[in-house]
Design a protein around this nucleic acid. Structure first.
Length: 341
RNA sequence: GCAGAGGUGGCGGAGCGGUCAAACGCAUCGGACUGUAAAUCCGACUCCUUCGGGAUACACUGGUUCAAAUCCAGUCCUCUGCA
Protein backbone atom coordinates (compact mmCIF):
# COMPACT_ATOMS: atom_id res chain seq x y z
CA UNK A 1 0.00 0.00 0.00
CA UNK A 2 1.27 3.40 -0.99
CA UNK A 3 2.03 5.63 1.94
CA UNK A 4 -0.55 8.32 1.39
CA UNK A 5 0.38 10.36 4.44
CA UNK A 6 3.13 11.84 2.33
CA UNK A 7 0.37 13.82 0.60
CA UNK A 8 0.05 15.89 3.77
CA UNK A 9 3.75 16.44 4.16
CA UNK A 10 5.08 17.94 0.96
CA UNK A 11 4.18 19.69 -2.25
CA UNK A 12 2.80 17.79 -5.20
CA UNK A 13 1.87 18.69 -8.70
CA UNK A 14 -0.52 16.26 -10.37
CA UNK A 15 -0.94 16.29 -14.13
CA UNK A 16 -4.44 15.53 -15.32
CA UNK A 17 -4.82 12.04 -16.70
CA UNK A 18 -8.51 12.61 -17.27
CA UNK A 19 -9.17 9.40 -19.15
CA UNK A 20 -6.47 7.40 -17.48
CA UNK A 21 -3.58 8.74 -19.52
CA UNK A 22 -1.58 11.92 -19.50
CA UNK A 23 -2.03 12.89 -23.11
CA UNK A 24 0.86 11.90 -25.34
CA UNK A 25 2.94 10.38 -22.58
CA UNK A 26 3.60 6.76 -21.85
CA UNK A 27 3.48 5.84 -18.19
CA UNK A 28 7.26 5.48 -18.26
CA UNK A 29 7.69 8.96 -19.69
CA UNK A 30 5.31 10.22 -17.04
CA UNK A 31 7.48 8.71 -14.30
CA UNK A 32 10.59 10.25 -15.81
CA UNK A 33 9.17 13.74 -15.40
CA UNK A 34 9.35 13.25 -11.65
CA UNK A 35 5.58 12.93 -11.34
CA UNK A 36 4.45 11.09 -8.24
CA UNK A 37 0.68 11.56 -8.39
CA UNK A 38 -1.93 12.01 -11.11
CA UNK A 39 -5.62 12.92 -11.25
CA UNK A 40 -8.10 10.93 -13.26
CA UNK A 41 -11.73 11.83 -13.80
CA UNK A 42 -14.75 9.98 -12.53
CA UNK A 43 -17.15 11.25 -15.15
CA UNK A 44 -14.92 10.58 -18.13
CA UNK A 45 -14.00 7.11 -16.93
CA UNK A 46 -17.65 6.40 -16.14
CA UNK A 47 -18.49 6.82 -19.81
CA UNK A 48 -15.37 5.12 -21.17
CA UNK A 49 -14.42 2.42 -20.49
CA UNK A 50 -16.82 2.25 -17.55
CA UNK A 51 -16.12 1.46 -13.91
CA UNK A 52 -16.90 -2.25 -14.21
CA UNK A 53 -14.43 -2.69 -17.02
CA UNK A 54 -11.74 -0.88 -15.07
CA UNK A 55 -12.46 -3.03 -12.04
CA UNK A 56 -12.25 -6.21 -14.09
CA UNK A 57 -8.93 -5.06 -15.46
CA UNK A 58 -7.62 -4.68 -11.95
CA UNK A 59 -8.10 -0.96 -11.49
CA UNK A 60 -6.68 2.12 -13.13
CA UNK A 61 -3.19 1.67 -11.72
CA UNK A 62 -2.84 -1.80 -13.12
CA UNK A 63 -4.30 -0.68 -16.43
CA UNK A 64 -1.81 2.13 -16.69
CA UNK A 65 1.10 0.31 -15.17
CA UNK A 66 1.36 3.26 -12.81
CA UNK A 67 2.99 2.81 -9.42
CA UNK A 68 2.35 6.32 -8.13
CA UNK A 69 -0.60 7.90 -6.42
CA UNK A 70 -3.95 8.27 -8.19
CA UNK A 71 -6.60 10.83 -7.38
CA UNK A 72 -10.07 10.63 -8.87
CA UNK A 73 -11.82 13.90 -9.36
CA UNK A 74 -15.47 13.38 -8.52
CA UNK A 75 -17.04 14.74 -11.69
CA UNK A 76 -18.38 17.84 -9.95
CA UNK A 77 -16.46 20.15 -12.22
CA UNK A 78 -17.78 18.37 -15.30
CA UNK A 79 -21.35 18.71 -14.08
CA UNK A 80 -20.67 22.40 -14.08
CA UNK A 81 -18.72 22.74 -17.29
CA UNK A 82 -20.84 20.39 -19.35
CA UNK A 83 -24.32 20.56 -17.86
CA UNK A 84 -24.68 24.00 -16.32
CA UNK A 85 -23.19 25.52 -19.45
CA UNK A 86 -25.61 23.44 -21.52
CA UNK A 87 -22.93 21.85 -23.63
CA UNK A 88 -24.39 18.50 -22.67
CA UNK A 89 -28.01 17.58 -22.14
CA UNK A 90 -28.86 16.76 -18.58
CA UNK A 91 -29.92 18.22 -15.28
CA UNK A 92 -28.49 18.68 -11.86
CA UNK A 93 -30.86 18.20 -8.95
CA UNK A 94 -30.71 17.78 -5.19
CA UNK A 95 -30.00 14.09 -5.58
CA UNK A 96 -27.23 14.41 -8.15
CA UNK A 97 -27.17 14.65 -11.91
CA UNK A 98 -28.53 12.75 -14.87
CA UNK A 99 -27.16 13.36 -18.31
CA UNK A 100 -26.65 11.92 -21.76
CA UNK A 101 -23.30 11.42 -23.35
CA UNK A 102 -23.57 13.30 -26.63
CA UNK A 103 -21.69 10.75 -28.72
CA UNK A 104 -23.48 7.53 -27.84
CA UNK A 105 -26.62 8.96 -26.30
CA UNK A 106 -26.39 6.75 -23.23
CA UNK A 107 -27.93 8.10 -20.06
CA UNK A 108 -25.88 8.24 -16.88
CA UNK A 109 -26.55 9.16 -13.31
CA UNK A 110 -23.99 10.66 -11.01
CA UNK A 111 -24.94 10.98 -7.36
CA UNK A 112 -22.74 11.36 -4.29
CA UNK A 113 -23.10 7.63 -3.67
CA UNK A 114 -22.47 6.54 -7.24
CA UNK A 115 -19.51 8.90 -7.49
CA UNK A 116 -17.89 7.10 -4.56
CA UNK A 117 -18.78 3.71 -6.00
CA UNK A 118 -17.25 4.62 -9.34
CA UNK A 119 -14.12 6.00 -7.74
CA UNK A 120 -13.74 2.80 -5.75
CA UNK A 121 -14.10 0.68 -8.85
CA UNK A 122 -11.59 2.85 -10.67
CA UNK A 123 -9.25 2.00 -7.86
CA UNK A 124 -7.99 5.43 -6.90
CA UNK A 125 -5.98 6.19 -3.78
CA UNK A 126 -7.63 9.46 -2.93
CA UNK A 127 -11.29 10.08 -3.57
CA UNK A 128 -13.00 13.44 -3.93
CA UNK A 129 -16.56 14.13 -2.82
CA UNK A 130 -19.06 15.16 -5.45
CA UNK A 131 -19.58 18.91 -5.28
CA UNK A 132 -21.87 21.50 -6.81
CA UNK A 133 -19.43 23.57 -8.81
CA UNK A 134 -20.52 26.85 -10.38
CA UNK A 135 -19.13 29.69 -12.40
CA UNK A 136 -17.55 32.81 -10.91
CA UNK A 137 -19.68 35.90 -10.46
CA UNK A 138 -22.43 33.83 -8.89
CA UNK A 139 -25.29 35.55 -7.07
CA UNK A 140 -25.31 35.27 -3.30
CA UNK A 141 -28.41 33.08 -3.38
CA UNK A 142 -26.92 30.70 -5.93
CA UNK A 143 -23.63 30.57 -4.05
CA UNK A 144 -25.47 29.65 -0.84
CA UNK A 145 -27.37 26.96 -2.68
CA UNK A 146 -24.16 25.59 -4.10
CA UNK A 147 -22.55 25.50 -0.65
CA UNK A 148 -25.51 23.79 1.00
CA UNK A 149 -25.72 21.19 -1.71
CA UNK A 150 -21.97 20.63 -1.63
CA UNK A 151 -22.16 20.07 2.16
CA UNK A 152 -25.05 17.61 1.88
CA UNK A 153 -23.33 15.73 -0.87
CA UNK A 154 -20.10 15.63 1.12
CA UNK A 155 -21.93 13.98 4.01
CA UNK A 156 -23.50 11.44 1.69
CA UNK A 157 -20.13 10.70 0.10
CA UNK A 158 -18.49 10.15 3.45
CA UNK A 159 -21.32 7.91 4.65
CA UNK A 160 -21.05 5.85 1.50
CA UNK A 161 -17.29 5.61 1.84
CA UNK A 162 -17.53 4.51 5.46
CA UNK A 163 -20.66 2.37 5.46
CA UNK A 164 -20.16 0.58 2.18
CA UNK A 165 -16.40 0.25 2.10
CA UNK A 166 -15.24 0.64 5.67
CA UNK A 167 -13.57 4.00 5.19
CA UNK A 168 -9.86 4.66 5.34
CA UNK A 169 -9.29 1.99 7.98
CA UNK A 170 -10.41 -0.83 5.77
CA UNK A 171 -9.50 0.51 2.34
CA UNK A 172 -6.34 2.44 3.06
CA UNK A 173 -7.72 5.14 0.80
CA UNK A 174 -8.24 8.78 1.64
CA UNK A 175 -11.34 10.89 1.16
CA UNK A 176 -11.09 14.59 0.41
CA UNK A 177 -13.86 17.15 0.08
CA UNK A 178 -14.38 20.25 -2.01
CA UNK A 179 -14.97 23.72 -0.58
CA UNK A 180 -17.34 25.94 -2.52
CA UNK A 181 -18.67 29.45 -1.85
CA UNK A 182 -17.79 31.30 -5.02
CA UNK A 183 -16.36 34.77 -4.33
CA UNK A 184 -18.07 35.22 -0.96
CA UNK A 185 -15.41 35.03 1.73
CA UNK A 186 -17.84 34.28 4.53
CA UNK A 187 -19.43 31.46 2.51
CA UNK A 188 -15.98 30.03 1.78
CA UNK A 189 -15.17 30.15 5.48
CA UNK A 190 -18.54 28.68 6.42
CA UNK A 191 -18.22 25.85 3.92
CA UNK A 192 -14.70 25.09 5.12
CA UNK A 193 -15.79 25.02 8.78
CA UNK A 194 -18.78 22.80 8.14
CA UNK A 195 -16.71 20.37 6.12
CA UNK A 196 -14.10 20.36 8.87
CA UNK A 197 -16.79 19.32 11.36
CA UNK A 198 -17.62 16.36 9.16
CA UNK A 199 -13.93 15.57 8.90
CA UNK A 200 -11.95 14.69 5.80
CA UNK A 201 -8.40 13.81 4.88
CA UNK A 202 -8.16 16.79 2.60
CA UNK A 203 -9.83 20.06 1.78
CA UNK A 204 -9.84 21.05 -1.85
CA UNK A 205 -10.41 24.56 -3.07
CA UNK A 206 -13.13 24.23 -5.70
CA UNK A 207 -14.81 26.50 -8.16
CA UNK A 208 -12.97 28.86 -10.41
CA UNK A 209 -9.55 29.83 -9.18
CA UNK A 210 -9.05 32.92 -11.28
CA UNK A 211 -11.16 36.03 -11.58
CA UNK A 212 -12.24 37.69 -14.80
CA UNK A 213 -8.89 39.44 -15.06
CA UNK A 214 -7.03 36.16 -14.77
CA UNK A 215 -5.85 36.88 -11.20
CA UNK A 216 -5.70 34.08 -8.65
CA UNK A 217 -8.50 34.45 -6.10
CA UNK A 218 -6.11 34.58 -3.14
CA UNK A 219 -8.60 36.05 -0.67
CA UNK A 220 -11.08 33.24 -1.22
CA UNK A 221 -8.29 30.71 -1.05
CA UNK A 222 -7.04 32.15 2.22
CA UNK A 223 -10.54 32.14 3.72
CA UNK A 224 -10.64 28.41 3.16
CA UNK A 225 -7.16 27.61 4.47
CA UNK A 226 -7.80 29.56 7.68
CA UNK A 227 -10.79 27.37 8.50
CA UNK A 228 -9.42 23.95 7.77
CA UNK A 229 -7.49 21.59 10.08
CA UNK A 230 -3.71 21.35 9.88
CA UNK A 231 -2.06 18.11 8.79
CA UNK A 232 -4.49 17.58 5.97
CA UNK A 233 -4.21 17.67 2.20
CA UNK A 234 -4.85 21.17 0.92
CA UNK A 235 -5.48 20.83 -2.79
CA UNK A 236 -5.89 23.92 -4.96
CA UNK A 237 -7.88 22.42 -7.81
CA UNK A 238 -6.99 23.82 -11.17
CA UNK A 239 -4.05 25.92 -9.99
CA UNK A 240 -2.41 27.03 -12.12
CA UNK A 241 0.25 29.09 -13.79
CA UNK A 242 3.71 28.65 -12.23
CA UNK A 243 3.49 31.99 -10.42
CA UNK A 244 0.02 31.09 -9.11
CA UNK A 245 1.27 27.80 -7.72
CA UNK A 246 3.96 29.73 -5.86
CA UNK A 247 1.32 32.15 -4.55
CA UNK A 248 -1.03 29.36 -3.49
CA UNK A 249 1.80 27.50 -1.78
CA UNK A 250 2.53 30.58 0.33
CA UNK A 251 -1.09 30.70 1.45
CA UNK A 252 -0.84 27.09 2.57
CA UNK A 253 -1.87 24.86 -0.30
CA UNK A 254 0.36 21.89 -1.01
CA UNK A 255 -1.27 20.05 -3.89
CA UNK A 256 -2.00 21.33 -7.38
CA UNK A 257 -3.19 20.28 -10.77
CA UNK A 258 -3.91 22.13 -13.98
CA UNK A 259 -4.47 21.30 -17.60
CA UNK A 260 -2.30 24.24 -18.59
CA UNK A 261 0.85 22.18 -18.38
CA UNK A 262 -0.14 19.56 -20.90
CA UNK A 263 -2.56 21.56 -23.00
CA UNK A 264 -0.22 24.48 -23.42
CA UNK A 265 2.57 22.11 -24.34
CA UNK A 266 0.41 20.81 -27.16
CA UNK A 267 -0.50 24.34 -28.17
CA UNK A 268 3.11 25.50 -28.17
CA UNK A 269 3.27 27.58 -24.98
CA UNK A 270 6.21 26.38 -22.94
CA UNK A 271 7.24 27.21 -19.41
CA UNK A 272 10.93 27.82 -18.85
CA UNK A 273 13.29 29.31 -16.28
CA UNK A 274 13.35 32.39 -18.53
CA UNK A 275 9.57 32.71 -18.72
CA UNK A 276 7.11 31.63 -21.35
CA UNK A 277 8.40 30.51 -24.75
CA UNK A 278 6.05 30.18 -27.70
CA UNK A 279 7.66 27.50 -29.77
CA UNK A 280 5.47 28.05 -32.83
CA UNK A 281 6.57 31.66 -33.26
CA UNK A 282 8.75 32.39 -36.27
CA UNK A 283 11.72 33.50 -34.19
CA UNK A 284 12.16 29.84 -33.16
CA UNK A 285 12.70 28.58 -36.70
CA UNK A 286 16.49 28.78 -36.53
CA UNK A 287 16.96 28.77 -32.77
CA UNK A 288 19.37 25.98 -31.95
CA UNK A 289 19.10 26.34 -28.20
CA UNK A 290 17.09 23.85 -26.15
CA UNK A 291 13.69 24.96 -24.88
CA UNK A 292 15.25 25.67 -21.49
CA UNK A 293 19.02 25.60 -20.87
CA UNK A 294 18.44 24.89 -17.20
CA UNK A 295 16.20 21.91 -17.83
CA UNK A 296 17.48 18.37 -17.97
CA UNK A 297 14.44 16.63 -19.45
CA UNK A 298 14.60 14.35 -22.46
CA UNK A 299 13.33 17.16 -24.67
CA UNK A 300 15.86 19.75 -23.55
CA UNK A 301 18.79 17.32 -23.47
CA UNK A 302 18.31 16.19 -27.05
CA UNK A 303 16.41 18.63 -29.22
CA UNK A 304 16.60 22.21 -30.43
CA UNK A 305 13.82 24.77 -30.41
CA UNK A 306 14.10 24.88 -34.20
CA UNK A 307 13.40 21.17 -34.53
CA UNK A 308 10.46 21.28 -32.13
CA UNK A 309 9.13 24.38 -33.92
CA UNK A 310 9.21 22.52 -37.20
CA UNK A 311 7.57 19.37 -35.86
CA UNK A 312 4.79 21.14 -33.98
CA UNK A 313 3.93 23.40 -36.90
CA UNK A 314 3.76 20.45 -39.24
CA UNK A 315 1.68 18.12 -37.17
CA UNK A 316 4.29 15.65 -36.00
CA UNK A 317 2.85 14.10 -32.85
CA UNK A 318 6.31 13.48 -31.45
CA UNK A 319 6.51 17.19 -30.73
CA UNK A 320 3.41 16.91 -28.53
CA UNK A 321 5.14 14.22 -26.51
CA UNK A 322 8.44 16.03 -26.16
CA UNK A 323 6.88 19.37 -25.27
CA UNK A 324 4.57 17.73 -22.73
CA UNK A 325 7.63 16.07 -21.20
CA UNK A 326 9.29 19.45 -20.94
CA UNK A 327 6.39 21.39 -19.46
CA UNK A 328 5.62 18.69 -16.94
CA UNK A 329 9.27 18.36 -15.95
CA UNK A 330 9.39 22.13 -15.48
CA UNK A 331 6.40 21.96 -13.15
CA UNK A 332 7.84 19.05 -11.17
CA UNK A 333 11.10 20.92 -10.80
CA UNK A 334 9.21 24.00 -9.67
CA UNK A 335 7.22 22.03 -7.11
CA UNK A 336 10.31 20.36 -5.68
CA UNK A 337 11.84 23.80 -5.21
CA UNK A 338 9.01 24.96 -2.93
CA UNK A 339 10.27 24.86 0.62
CA UNK A 340 7.74 26.55 2.88
CA UNK A 341 6.15 23.40 4.27
C1' G B 1 -2.42 25.12 -86.97
C1' C B 2 -8.18 24.72 -86.38
C1' A B 3 -11.91 23.79 -82.00
C1' G B 4 -13.15 24.53 -76.84
C1' A B 5 -12.03 26.36 -71.75
C1' G B 6 -9.59 29.86 -68.97
C1' G B 7 -6.16 33.76 -66.72
C1' U B 8 -8.76 36.69 -59.35
C1' G B 9 -4.73 38.28 -53.21
C1' G B 10 1.54 33.68 -51.08
C1' C B 11 -1.30 29.08 -53.05
C1' G B 12 -6.10 26.64 -54.23
C1' G B 13 -10.72 28.63 -55.39
C1' A B 14 -15.77 31.68 -55.25
C1' G B 15 -17.73 36.00 -57.45
C1' C B 16 -19.80 37.23 -63.46
C1' G B 17 -22.44 45.36 -63.69
C1' G B 18 -23.15 48.63 -58.02
C1' U B 19 -23.91 46.23 -50.89
C1' C B 20 -16.06 43.77 -53.52
C1' A B 21 -10.10 45.28 -50.69
C1' A B 22 -13.04 40.59 -53.08
C1' A B 23 -16.65 34.30 -49.88
C1' C B 24 -14.37 29.72 -48.34
C1' G B 25 -10.04 26.57 -47.59
C1' C B 26 -4.69 26.27 -47.04
C1' A B 27 -0.22 28.74 -45.86
C1' U B 28 1.80 32.83 -43.05
C1' C B 29 1.93 36.15 -38.51
C1' G B 30 0.17 37.09 -33.57
C1' G B 31 -2.74 35.84 -29.20
C1' A B 32 -5.61 32.78 -25.76
C1' C B 33 -5.89 28.40 -22.86
C1' U B 34 -6.27 27.45 -15.18
C1' G B 35 -10.52 20.18 -10.79
C1' U B 36 -9.39 18.78 -20.22
C1' A B 37 -15.70 17.42 -25.33
C1' A B 38 -9.13 21.25 -26.74
C1' A B 39 -2.71 18.21 -31.69
C1' U B 40 -8.02 23.39 -29.90
C1' C B 41 -10.02 28.24 -30.29
C1' C B 42 -9.69 33.59 -31.54
C1' G B 43 -7.68 37.59 -34.36
C1' A B 44 -4.65 39.67 -38.37
C1' C B 45 -3.26 38.90 -43.30
C1' U B 46 -2.44 45.33 -50.45
C1' C B 47 -0.25 50.04 -48.66
C1' C B 48 -0.90 54.54 -45.60
C1' U B 49 -3.86 56.41 -41.43
C1' U B 50 -4.91 61.72 -36.44
C1' C B 51 -8.63 54.76 -36.85
C1' G B 52 -13.32 58.75 -39.22
C1' G B 53 -11.09 57.13 -43.51
C1' G B 54 -7.59 57.56 -47.83
C1' A B 55 -4.72 55.47 -52.09
C1' U B 56 -3.71 51.59 -55.46
C1' A B 57 -5.98 46.57 -56.98
C1' C B 58 -8.89 40.88 -60.01
C1' A B 59 -2.95 39.05 -66.95
C1' C B 60 -2.02 43.66 -70.20
C1' U B 61 -3.91 47.92 -73.22
C1' G B 62 -7.90 50.51 -74.73
C1' G B 63 -13.35 51.10 -74.74
C1' U B 64 -18.86 51.09 -73.11
C1' U B 65 -21.29 52.87 -68.48
C1' C B 66 -23.14 57.45 -63.34
C1' A B 67 -20.64 52.70 -61.87
C1' A B 68 -16.40 47.14 -64.36
C1' A B 69 -13.04 41.54 -61.22
C1' U B 70 -17.77 41.33 -63.73
C1' C B 71 -19.75 43.87 -70.57
C1' C B 72 -16.88 44.84 -75.56
C1' A B 73 -12.19 44.90 -78.65
C1' G B 74 -7.20 43.85 -79.22
C1' U B 75 -2.52 41.82 -77.15
C1' C B 76 0.18 38.23 -74.29
C1' C B 77 0.02 33.64 -71.76
C1' U B 78 -2.11 28.56 -69.93
C1' C B 79 -4.83 24.02 -70.35
C1' U B 80 -7.92 20.28 -72.90
C1' G B 81 -9.93 17.83 -77.58
C1' C B 82 -8.77 17.31 -83.22
C1' A B 83 -5.00 17.22 -86.72
Amino acid sequence: MTNLDILKEKYFFMPDATRGAVRYLTTKQLEETGTEAIVTNTLHLLIHPGPDVIQQLGGIKKMMGWKGIVFTDSGGFQLFSLLHSKKWKGKVSENGATFKSPKEGNTYELTPESSIDIQMKIGSDVLVTLDDCRDTGLSRADAEKSVERTLKWAVRCKERFNNEYGGTKKTGKLLTCVVQGSNYLDLRAYCAKELSKIGFDGYNFGGYVIDKDGELVVDEMSAVIENVPKDTIRYAMGVGKPEDIVKASKIGYNLFDTVLVTRNARHGTLYTSQGVVRIKNSEMALDQAPVDRECNCECCRNYTRAYLHHMLKNGEATALTLLTIHNLTFYQTLIKGLTLL
